[in-house]
Simulated assay, not measured.
Amino acid sequence: MQRKIEVCLTPALINLYTIEDSIVVVIDILRATSSIVYGIDNGAEAIIPVAQVEDCLNYADKGFLLAAERNGEVVEGYDFGNSPFSYTADKVAGKTVVLTTTNGTKALHLAKKAHQVVIGSFLNLQSLCEWIKLQDRNVLLLCAGWKDQFNLEDTLFAGAVVQQLRSSFELYDDASVAAEDLYTLAKDNLRAYVGKSSHSHRMVALNIEEDVKFCLQLNICEAIPVLVGDSLVALEK
């Protein structure tokens, strides 16, 4: 089998791809997938992604932590949003978090029909790529974007994955080439390049620059969250 790696630049395009037999890597660098990776790496038992803020309330009586973010801010009345600093071991170890975000959890729900759904971030880049190399499956890198539009940071991460994996795949698409070229331009100073992005500007305006810096760290986590039923749990390698 000739393995194929592709990049879907926005969830609005996912219907153009056949994913039923593929591994889909969901990417929302600022900040959902970074926080999910960090939380699972720090011992969270599970993270349950839900589409709407109101869906969190279905879990209100189960003793779970409820996390809701919209437009970069914590929704009033919830335990926290999707800042990685909310997913430290002292807060999430041994616990289940129910999470909804503007872009990342939507992308996750669109990917559910894939053979397997895993979570990618710069935090677990190396671990993720090493695992993918061992899988005999096509791979789609699904960028969550911003409200169905293209964004820089997710595409840069997709390019980082392509750069590490391209020699292991016989086929790749033009979006993969473009993403890798962007990453090559940006990799020596990711923060400066991501500073051009619209979402980075939103986060600076919200005074959460430290979140941006945190999410651009390379390989500080080993965990690969995988979707099992409705929950994200640590992949057993």
Score class of each variant (00 low, 15 high):
Asp211Pro: 07
Leu185Glu: 10
Pro84Leu: 01
Ala144Ser: 14
Gly159Lys: 03
Ile29Phe: 03
Ala107Gly: 12
Leu140Val: 15
Gln52Gly: 03
Leu152Gln: 04
Val204Cys: 09
Tyr17Cys: 12
Tyr59Met: 10
Val25Arg: 03
Ala51Ile: 14
Cys221Pro: 00
Phe122Tyr: 06
Leu134Phe: 03
Ala93Gln: 06
Asn42Tyr: 01
Ile27Lys: 04
Leu190Val: 06
Ala144Glu: 05
Arg3Cys: 12
Ala186Met: 06
Val233Leu: 01
Glu54Ile: 03
Leu216Gly: 05
Val74Cys: 06
Gln126Lys: 03
Leu216Asn: 05
Ala107Glu: 10
Ser231Lys: 14
Val118Glu: 04
Thr18Asp: 12
Ile224Lys: 02
Ile5Asp: 08
Ser200Gly: 04
Glu180Arg: 08
Asn15Tyr: 09
Val226Asp: 04
Ser167Thr: 11
Lys187Phe: 05
Lys196Ile: 15
Gly229Ala: 06
Asp55Phe: 13
Pro11Tyr: 12
Thr155Lys: 01
Ala178Pro: 00
Ile208Asp: 07
His199Arg: 06
His201Phe: 06
Val162Ala: 01
Glu20Pro: 09
Ala60His: 12
Leu16Trp: 11
Leu57Cys: 10
Arg191Asn: 08
Asn103Lys: 06
Ala205Glu: 14
Thr102Gln: 08
Glu45Arg: 09
Leu171Gly: 13
Val26Ala: 08
Ala89Val: 07
Ala111Asp: 15
Leu57Gly: 04
Ile47Asn: 04
Asp90Ala: 08
Arg31Asp: 08
Leu227Tyr: 11
Gln164Lys: 10
Thr100Val: 12
Ala32Arg: 05
Cys56Ser: 11
Tyr172Asn: 07
Ile27Arg: 03
Phe85Leu: 12
Glu222Lys: 11
Leu216Ile: 10
Ala44His: 04
Val37Arg: 00
Ile208Met: 11
Val162Ser: 00
Asn124Gly: 00
Asp154Thr: 00
Gly63Arg: 05
Phe64His: 13
Phe169Tyr: 15
Leu16Thr: 11
Ile36Trp: 02
Asp21Cys: 12
Lys112Gly: 11
Leu30Cys: 00
Thr88Met: 07
Thr155His: 01
Val98Trp: 09
Val24Asp: 08
Cys129Gly: 03
